[in-house]
Write a protein that binds this DNA or RNA. Structure first.
Lengths: 143, 143
DNA sequence: GCTTGCTCCTATAGTCGCTGGAGGATGTAC
DNA sequence: GTACATCCTCCAGCGACTATAGGAGCAAGC
């Protein structure tokens, strides 16, 4: 019996799926852990922390490469946190833009749905708006 | 000289990239057009309309399969538009949920960025919040 | 007619961040 | 000892494109 946390426990504790933990190891986001005699991965508490960090970052919409940078920063606490700040700020700008875009989108979808008189397709506002971009007031970016 | 619109022109007119037009043909979203003697695709105005419809639908965040349904509906104008209405309503629900999620995200990112004193990583609010989910007030879903 | 240079063709592989399945080995509880 | 959960590797697939290689077509200028 080896003393180390099995991948399933780590998965449960961190909220990252087992397959995803292995995937993170594969892409070098998480160091390859030691193995049992039988070849099973054994983790420790640090790994759970790291995976929690990754999961939370992913939930905040950071890309893997950005998380890589953030993790490197975390490993070197004496360094300036300017990079972390820059990454977070850039993400904030993205999020604001996306909210604006989705709000415009919401308005257009509401217009479509409200205008639909539940009749035939030939007079359907939904189809009509999709077909004719001229009827669209808002300029939408990637939604 | 054949009379038909070249893929480049269709792309320009519809706002769909040339490679994407070919991709749509490949997945059966757009019918394969006739060709010139030299083997080049020749389109007509209907195709531009269809591609514009597709592009606009994609901008509104509809999935390819949903667009397939919407296009089929458009082709049979006598039919009830209930399906189109259902698809649009479902998308509206998704968009509203996403806006809510992103707004929570925005708040958390602002908290991170505002709290960062631009010092060392060891006292960086950004890193700290990412590391410790307990400091996160909001429960975030997919952002 | 010939060359320049743009547009177009096919086919295939890559992007991102996972997710799922096959087929088998290991560990544990009774 | 045996049933069962968990783990292993490898590889394929998702959605919606995007990019690259290596050509062929075609219009305009000289």
């Amino acid at each position: 019996m080896n003393h180390g946390i099995a991948i399933g426990k780590v998965s449960q504790a961190s909220g990252v799926k087992v397959t995803t933990v292995r995937f993170y190891e594969q892409i070098g986001l998480l160091a390859a852990p030691p193995r049992t005699d039988g070849g099973r991965r054994t983790y420790d508490l640090k790994d759970i922390e790291r995976l929690t960090f990754i999961r939370h970052s992913r939930e905040l919409g950071f890309e893997i490469d950005q998380i890589r940078t953030l993790l490197e920063l975390q490993d070197r606490p004496g360094q300036s946190c300017a990079d972390a700040d820059t990454i977070a700020k850039a993400r904030l700008v993205e999020v604001k833009a996306k909210i604006a875009s989705l709000t415009a989108l919401q308005a257009e979808l509401e217009r479509m749905v409200d205008g639909c008189s539940h009749g035939r397709v030939e007079s359907c506002r939904v189809i009509e708006i999709l077909a004719d971009h001229g009827k669209c007031k808002h300029h939408l970016h990637d939604a």
